[in-house]
Design a protein around this nucleic acid. Structure first.
Lengths: 214, 214, 214, 214
DNA sequence: GATGAATGAGTTTTCATTCAT
DNA sequence: CATGAATGAAAACTCATTCAT
């Protein structure tokens, strides 16, 4: 459960993420509560945005007393971090799975795999975008998640094209990540399905130009 | 690349947005106030986001009494619309200027022109992104601006590639617009300059594949 | 125009009403303006109540600039007094006319005459009620109007029943005045017409019992 | 005369108005808060009128934090309704008590009973008048209370004079209610005591003429 | 004089957070 | 531990009044 500590490079996060989410619940009851809270938070953040989402509504949607919410997440910011943390685990695992086969994939296949991953994370991706975009003071934790995901993405690219310099792999991964952040927005357009297809084209055309040839 | 300056919109807001409600200024003094308010709003929205930006701070940053701010923009939403309106004029003019020469441009040149336009709109683009993303009720005006910009972008694409169907031109313009919305974010990264180069690559590779080749 | 000074007893009003309405306009233009302002104020006060009525709306409804409104009536309170003053003149004249024939009237006829007077003052009576009820600090001026009207009403009663003691005539007139203040409210009920009839009954029954016999 | 005390409504608001919106208090502490808030609101509304009364002052007078006031009454309008509700219970009980003996009473006795009831409700009647007169949008609740009280009054009249048609009983009750609304104003006059006596005369003369004689 | 822009104190309402029960 | 009442700073917005043009 602290897998992100041993694998990726948390150099931007001083005291890592685990304790940011309040004291980890020891009992199963607590875990369910936390999961329910995070689910509710996902929905409310996605619907209202970070500022407009209220702790009271998040508590209500998960049938939790406001006092209990604060027991698990001592602040709104901590709740956001909790969400980011859970997303990091899920998305990180997905990226690792892609990276494992990256050397045998074409760029088009990699583009498809990345998009499929975003499709699979459908319920969380909008909330994530909202949280990453939120202009909050304690945004250093967000930097941490960014670093983790970025590292894995760079790993995936390097696995596919071993000749890539570390700097270039990093730069490409940043670009790809930003491209993928547009997906929740595309999903809100009327022509969502067609736009997803275009995004496949964007990604594969870019990767082909940047990684494979020139 | 700074074509929008010479064509339509000087810095002091010529026919200053009398838009949605709010007494239009009838004296020169008022005209300046409106421009100063929009400038301050641009900065504050960009820094804090829509929700966290306060009318009080926007007023203070333009040395305006809160009551005066409300004379010209009777609500926070109206202020956002005023900004959107001014941006629409400036960006629209820029897009038209590009469209005028689109038929004689390569896709790479078009990509460059679009990015140069975004660079020229530097001071406003972040605020714009923030406002377009804001989850507000009265978002109809935002839809309107979206439509206008989208139409001009589609016009530019059609000018370059007359063979493009109207539907496809529209779809591509939506995709391009979403890609360009990532620019304010790229600008906040440490590697901003390099990322702009990557974005040129993204755009030209995508347009080449979707418009020319494909 | 200062008739109320010579006839009734303004003992509760130190420096009378005239200058309370700001400097009396010398020119005809000014008079029209003042009349238009008072008409607009009548409507707005009646519709919104004293607090909710805004100086801006009153100015707008009479096509007057807000600055001009303040030239004639230096404060909201002064505007209210101006209205009270004009009403005092009109109602006072009406009461005097009734008083002139009171000795030859039955109480029922007096009741009818009073109600007919209220019907004739239809456009102003609601605003008046609103202003008299308003709980404002500078309400001493209201006391003045109250005194004036009360005096005339007492005069009318005494004219009808010379045997009435001054104290009793005064008390009865206060009671009658309060009864008549309900008329604007009755007018807002669905059964307004029938209620006016009932009010005639109330008045004549009361006066018959209190003045004529017991 | 203080019959309403023994029948239904103790001073501390037994089943305290959970009315229109606003979390109903679930603990004893909250119950007391609500009662204290309503008491403070009664005083402040009576003193200042609906518009001029501020939520801040009402909270302060009951030593309540403004946030707590809003927990129980989510808007100023809701607070007004809460007051109306409590008054409705108390006054309704009083009217029912009178109605129970109405068949054995003379009209003079009924008039006395009604006035005694108003005397007993002294602390609330002025606030009530203010609230019923307030020109507010969401005045539907006020209509409801009006209907309830009116119905009971009509019931009382019918109990006394079974021969009265339903329409006429209703009309009379409206008239009587309006007459009674003048009581808070009479109470503010210097000659309050004498005016109450006059009001007894008004009521009994009117009822005698309208119900018994006619 | 007329006009309308400027002012800012004051109002209602919200919400993250704390803490007694 | 769970609960929900209490708190109060802060935000959007209004409006009487003043005063430069």
């Amino acid at each position: 459960m602290s897998s992100q500590k041993s694998t990726a490079a948390p150099d931007t996060a001083p005291e890592a993420a685990p304790n940011a989410a309040g004291r980890a619940p020891k009992r199963a009851r607590g875990r369910q509560r936390v999961a329910a809270l995070l689910d509710a938070a996902t929905v409310v953040f996605a619907e209202k945005g970070y500022d407009a989402a209220t702790m009271t509504e998040i508590a209500a949607r998960s049938s939790t007393a406001i006092g209990s919410l604060y027991r698990f997440f001592p602040s709104k910011e901590a709740l956001a971090e909790g969400l980011l943390h859970r997303y990091g685990e899920r998305a990180g695992a997905g990226l690792d799975a892609i990276a494992a086969h990256a050397s045998a994939m074409t760029v088009a296949q990699m583009a498809d795999a990345l998009l499929d991953l975003m499709m699979a994370l459908k319920s969380e991706r909008t909330a994530l975008k909202v949280l990453m975009d939120a202009r909050v003071d304690g945004a250093n934790r967000r930097q941490y998640l960014r670093g983790v995901i970025r590292g894995r993405m760079a790993g995936m690219l390097s696995a596919h094209a071993p000749g890539l310099s570390a700097e270039r792999a990093d730069l490409l991964s940043v670009m790809v990540l930003h491209l993928m952040k547009t997906i929740p927005e595309l999903a809100e357009e009327a022509e969502a399905a067609a736009l997803f297809q275009e995004m496949r084209l964007v990604l594969s055309a870019y990767l082909a130009a940047a990684v494979d040839g020139g």
